[in-house]
């Protein structure tokens, strides 16, 4: 994708952090969320948007391949 001129960012759960780190991705946002829910808990719109904003920030500001942001938000199901 990057070779063809498309700027990419990956959003993934840190459950797979070993495997994903070894791929040396151009830009990565790693979340501390359980497998299958890399953007956050169901119906947690605020957290989902924060994760995307973190990814967009990497798009805008990363200057070299291999930049990772570890997203600090906590997985918080229910109560929405």
């Amino acid at each position: 994708m990057e070779e063809s001129g498309i700027v990419t960012v990956v959003i993934a759960t840190g459950v797979f952090s070993d495997r994903i780190k070894s791929m040396h991705l151009p830009r990565l946002v790693s979340t501390n969320f359980p497998m299958g829910r890399p953007l956050g808990a169901p119906l947690d719109r605020e957290m989902q948007k924060e994760v995307l904003l973190s990814a967009l920030d990497l798009i805008e500001n990363a200057n070299e391949a291999g930049v990772t942001t570890v997203f600090k938000g906590r997985y918080r199901p229910g109560n929405f």
Partner: peptide, 27 residues
């Protein structure tokens, strides 16, 4: 939740079959 996350991470530890030393980067 933290406990499950921590052990899921242990279960998927290791680099897997697909490793790359570098990647293309488009500014």
């Amino acid at each position: 939740i933290g406990h499950i996350y921590q052990y899921q991470q242990k279960g998927y530890a290791g680099t897997g079959r697909f490793t790359y030393s570098s990647s293309a980067f488009t500014r």
